[in-house]
Simulated assay, not measured.
Amino acid sequence: MTIIELFKKLLQFKSITPDDAGTFEFIDEYLGNEWECIVSDYEDVKNRFYYKKFNNKNQHLCFGGHIDVVPAGSNWDTDPFEPLEKDGQIFARGAQDMKSGVAAFLYACKHTEYFDGTLSILLTSDEEGDGIHGTVIALEDLKKRNFLPDYAVIAEPTCEKVFGDSIKIGRRGSINGYLTLQGIQGHAAYPERAVNPIHLISTILPNIASHRFDNGDESFSPSVLTITDIRAGLQVTNLTPDKLNLMFNVRNSTKTNQESIKDFIDSEFKNIDYTFRMTQSSYPFITSASSKMVKKINDSIYKTVNIRPQYSTAGGTSDARFFSRYGSDTIEFGVINDKIHSINERTSINEVENLTKVFSNLIEDF
């Protein structure tokens, strides 16, 4: 089976989160008996950790990813789960995010004859969903077994314009804020008898909207408060509302945390009756540009396509945050990211073949 045949096979599975749709049964058969497997399923989520110890050297490189995809949606030109090859491109749901990456490292690992240590693959069916029963569950299991990887490559799509132009050496965190301003309901004709929370926040909004908590640095852009929702009132014109709900998000660097955000909110709303809470769905991380992991993937990309990638921490969250939290030097590298989650998602045959070569070269030279 060629890499493109493997890629097309994976795309045929309708593996919408958290259903693997038979994908893992196929991968079990594809890798064969030479690879051991640790199962860390949680309720309806399936997690698989495949590994092969080539020798007893204390060096463990893991490739991570997810086999689940978002729903296809409507108005595709073709069946989203019947991959179509056209003009050097392959169209299907998950082509970029991220069955191209999964196919590439499965093929590279299966065809590895020697590695100086342990080679592994961690896959989940719960990355596009809540993500709380997927990779993090498998890594917790590995921690208990004292078998966490030293290095990790997450094959999410990372390139911007041409294959090889960007890798992610970190990610920003994500902090969500929920604010409720309490007022006093009343008739709009008698504003002096009411406390209008919309009026209360009107003078504060310019201070908090797009507020920068830090200036960023060479690795991270500034941590900015983005207001995502404001709600008040009962959709009538003669009633002053009794409360206002506001939600915001901060994609934070390592310079900003929940405490600094809370201090800012407290200072801005100190004279108002309000309640406030925060949640953090992910924490920022950075892998040093001088680390072995970054240097090796950089060299492998250059060896394959003669490009030195830029280092990035942009974008949303990924399962890379879990690997980093458990102590693995982690990077992300995959195909061009321009059609993920969209109608007629696609990636090129050339990218998939080159990604496979990058991973093969990485393993060989590690």
Rank of each mutant, 00 (worst) to 15 (best):
R171D: 14
R172Q: 15
L123C: 11
F147M: 15
L139N: 06
H133S: 09
F163A: 02
D150Q: 07
T158F: 01
A138D: 03
V162W: 00
S125P: 07
I169D: 08
G131H: 07
G173T: 12
L122C: 15
E156P: 02
N146E: 15
T124V: 08
A152P: 03
T135I: 10
L142P: 05
G170A: 13
L122I: 15
S125I: 08
P157S: 02
N146W: 01
S125A: 13
D141F: 03
E128V: 06
E127P: 06
S120A: 13
L119P: 14
G173C: 13
I132G: 07
G129L: 09
D126C: 07
D130C: 06
I132P: 00
K161E: 07
V136P: 02
S125R: 08
G131A: 10
E140N: 14
G164S: 02
G170P: 14
I167G: 09
P157G: 02
L139H: 04
S120H: 11
G129F: 05
A155R: 03
I121V: 15
H133M: 08
L119H: 11
G131W: 12
F147D: 08
K143R: 11
F163Y: 05
V136K: 13
F147V: 05
L148I: 12
G134S: 05
T124I: 07
R171L: 13
K161S: 09
D130H: 08
T158E: 00
S125L: 07
S125W: 10
H133E: 06
K143Y: 04
T118I: 13
I121A: 08
I121Y: 13
E156N: 03
D130Q: 14
S120F: 07
S166Q: 15
R172W: 14
Y151P: 01
I121C: 12
K161L: 03
R172P: 14
P149S: 08
P149K: 12
L148G: 07
E128N: 11
I137S: 01
E127G: 08
T158Y: 01
